[in-house]
Amino acid sequence: MIRKLFDKIGAQWVFLIIVAVAYAVALVLNPSACADAFFGFFRLLVRMLPVLALVFGIIFFTNLLINPKSISKHLGEGSSIQGWLIAIAAGIISTGPIYMWYPLLSDLRAKGMKTAYIAAFLYNRAVKIPLLPMMVFYFGVRYTVVLTAYMILFSVLNGLAVERLITDTQGGQ
């Protein structure tokens, strides 16, 4: 039945329906928290709208101006250190929550971006330059510098490991 629903309306709508069911259950169990969550959703959504507009704007201009061959050249299989630097820098400077960037990454992957760079981009989303002063405030300068350096370094290892594991499991099938 679920399979049929997936095929008929698409997995993305099934996911939204499941979340709506979770809200219905929460409404029965804890009505006030559920209402707060629902209003919180609208506040969060309003905050996310500029980022969402930015992401879809980038997708539009990528489709319009960037040739898939150029993405393959700079971020595809044949690219080198330049690809890592682009993925790391783009991950660090990109704003908003991580999931807002999934559509763009999905689009870029379809155009030839390497899996390792997608993973590295997503890992570097954890390095938040505007929040570094807050991290310094809570944990100190030394901790912030050491942790940030490790996160950037491990983003490359993360990319390599994810690509390797995905390739291995695909090869094994």
Binding site: Q12, F15, A22, A37, M48, L52, F56, Y99, P103
Partner: peptide, 21 residues
């Protein structure tokens, strides 16, 4: 891309708000 992504993004924001509260 928007048609595919928007229901998923709405679902994630709803879920995060629910768990946070």
């Amino acid at each position: 891309s928007m048609k595919m992504s928007i229901p998923v993004l709405l679902g994630v924001i709803l879920l995060i708000s629910l768990i946070t509260h």
